[in-house]
């Protein structure tokens, strides 16, 4: 089993979307003559993911994340460019390829609603031709990590969202895929649920060495799981590299927190941009460019009745947000 990376080269996807003005007349005209507009969902995106890597795939809504994942899993044909995953061209959808990867979409169901997940699992076992002993072994392992057993006997419709997501993910992993494409796997879950899935994915990656490409709107998923992130926006690659380097490149800022004796009476705007920090309401926070930190700090100390002062990197969430906004 030669470990081969995910290789994406100049991948592009353009959709033709029907377009019309609002209103009745336009609706009738559009019935007879459709106008189409080209929408570039993904534009010349290239990257490479090594086996065993967990990579966060980020971007605002409509950036082209799902389209890219769908191309890599084989659901969509690209308009141009190429990709190879485990040595296969995804959109040829060879059954050998389909058996070695999985796509889990947090917003879609693969399990049958009316029967317990255990029965849907057996159906998957049959479709993926998983031998009994291998199936049992994998199931045991997944059960150990996700505590599936108590959920297996209830019809899926009676499970909570978090419980169902655990089963959905397990269903996608029964065939022990070597590449995982996860599209918002924690969407809608509460904090505990998110943490469970996160811990599971980390452990799964450690045990199996599977490569994971993951999108999420919860930055905590990304910071907990991924050392590397790929950011796309408007279909174009904006950043590909370490999570820690990201703040240096995208947002060379520091946060200066000051505790003042009469906190509200001072205007801090001339020192830098004041930002909210929910975790620490006692201090007021200033966002200051990294090369200005020393100057601003000494100025603050000399000008104001400062009780306490801290200097920190901005939280990665806000850095990523900033990256989107650029």
């Amino acid at each position: 089993m030669s470990p081969e990376p995910i290789l994406v080269e100049q991948l592009s996807k353009t959709y033709q979307v029907p377009e019309r003005e609002g209103g009745f007349g336009a609706a009738v005209r559009s019935f007879f003559k459709r106008k189409y507009k080209d929408v570039k969902a993904v534009e010349k995106v290239s990257f490479r993911i090594e086996p065993g890597e967990v990579v966060g795939f980020l971007g605002p809504n409509g950036a082209g994340k799902t389209t890219t994942l769908k191309m890599l899993s084989g659901l969509l044909h690209p308009t141009s460019g190429g990709a190879s995953v485990l040595g296969f061209t995804p959109w040829e959808r060879k059954s050998e390829y389909l058996r070695s990867m999985t796509l889990v979409m947090g917003q879609r169901n693969r399990l049958s609603w009316d029967i317990p997940a255990a029965d849907s699992f057996l159906l998957n076992q049959a479709i993926y031709r998983i031998p009994d002993d291998e199936y049992k072994k994998t199931y045991k392992e997944l059960d150990e990590l996700l505590e599936l057993e108590p959920l297996m006997k209830k019809p899926v419709r009676n499970l909570s969202l978090g419980e169902r997501m655990k089963c959905e993910i397990a269903a996608g992993l029964l065939h022990r895929p070597r590449v995982l494409f996860l599209d918002e796997p924690t969407i809608g879950l509460d904090i505990t649920g998110q943490v469970r899935i996160r811990e599971f994915l980390r452990e799964y990656n450690r045990r199996t060495g599977a490569a994971i490409l993951l999108t999420s709107h919860y930055m905590a998923d990304v910071t907990a799981l991924c050392e590397r992130v790929i950011i796309i926006d408007h279909g174009q690659l904006k950043y590909d590299g370490g999570l820690t380097d990201l703040s240096r490149k995208i947002a060379p800022f520091k946060l200066i927190g000051v505790m003042l004796s009469d906190a509200d009476s001072h205007d801090l705007s001339r020192y830098g941009t004041e930002v909210q920090n929910e975790e620490d309401m006692d201090k007021r926070y200033l966002q200051v460019r990294a090369d200005e930190v020393t100057r601003v700090t000494s100025q603050l100390l000399s000008d104001l009745p400062v009780h306490d002062i801290t200097i920190a990197d901005p939280p990665i969430e806000s850095v990523i947000e900033q990256a989107f906004n650029q």
Binding site: L75, S95, L98, R99, T102, L103, M105, R108, I127, Y128
Partner: peptide, 18 residues
Amino acid sequence: RDGSLDYTLLQPAPSMFL
């Protein structure tokens, strides 16, 4: 309509059969 056909197409069996 609900997009679950995606999962069907990703299963390693002929889609027409499924």
